[in-house]
Design a protein around this nucleic acid. Structure first.
Length: 256
DNA sequence: ATGACACCTACGAGGTGA
């Protein structure tokens, strides 16, 4: 089973690329972030035409998350985290093929310091509280999405220049570490312990061609899923396509 | 600090987000 996460940066503006990627790479389950569309504008028909059932949690202009399942319909188990209050669509969850899939879009948090950074830390705390409940269920769970965190210096092309950024601030890295230490496995890093792997390259200054990237899209696996992890990677070429998102799709594969 | 891109409103260009 191949599970992917892809921050599309506008699901309608990116539809042609999204459909091409689904056709060429054939993931079984897909977590999408940054739909940037209200529910009524989600391109359900086109995605269904590509062979995927979908559930989505949209919002006008910003945020928005969705889960796709090939030749299946995700069984929705939750939208929004416990304690969410302000209408930002950043979490959706479904059961598919015996796996509970949590699709998340963690707040960016810039500028730092400021209220957006505080909101990021608070959202992170709500995620951690809920993630602990999920682990206690002792079922196969994957939390996948854009965490807006580079966990270590290996995940940043130029760490010293990112130290004051909300994506690399010590408080945010600490929050990610504490979350993982509940008992989750960082799937991509587990498969590639020493490799520089990026999932995001800014649109600016030719960042993709220079490989000036960041690893901010992650898979956190519960213990029983971590045992089934067989591979992980990033579809980097997709970032080089015309009209690409600033993120590339990332994926893991699980033994059946 | 800069800058690219997608979204919005509203019909041209500017604001916001990240």
């Amino acid at each position: 089973m191949k599970i992917a996460t892809y921050n599309v940066n506008g699901v309608n503006g990116r539809l042609e690329n999204l459909l091409r990627w689904l056709d060429e790479f054939n993931p079984d389950i897909v977590c999408l972030q940054e739909l940037k569309a209200p529910d009524i504008r989600f391109p359900a028909r086109e995605i269904e035409g590509a062979g995927y059932g979908a559930i989505w949690h949209g919002q006008k202009s910003w945020n928005g998350v969705a889960i796709l399942a090939r030749d299946a319909m995700p069984l929705e188990t939750r939208r929004g985290l416990p304690g969410d209050d302000n209408g930002q669509s950043r979490y959706i969850e479904a059961a598919i093929g015996g796996v509970l899939v949590g699709c998340l879009y963690l707040p960016n948090g810039n500028p730092q310091p400021g209220p957006k950074f505080e909101y990021k830390l608070a959202w992170f705390q709500r995620l951690a509280d809920y993630a602990r409940e999920l682990l206690e269920l002792e079922i196969p769970v994957v939390l996948a999405g854009d965490f807006n965190v580079m966990p270590t210096e290996l995940d940043v092309y130029n760490p010293e220049r990112w130290i004051d950024d909300a994506l690399f601030h010590p408080d945010v890295r600490h929050a990610f570490r504490e979350l993982v230490d509940q008992g989750w496995t960082d799937g991509i890093r587990r498969m590639h312990p020493d490799q520089r792997i990026y999932t995001f390259w800014k649109y600016l200054r030719n960042a993709y061609a220079r490989d000036a990237g960041l690893r901010i899209d992650h898979f956190l696996l519960s213990p029983s899923l971590a045992e089934r992890l067989s591979d992980a990677g990033v579809d980097g070429d997709v970032r080089g396509w015309a009209h690409a998102s600033d993120h590339a799709p990332a994926w893991i594969t699980l033994d059946d």
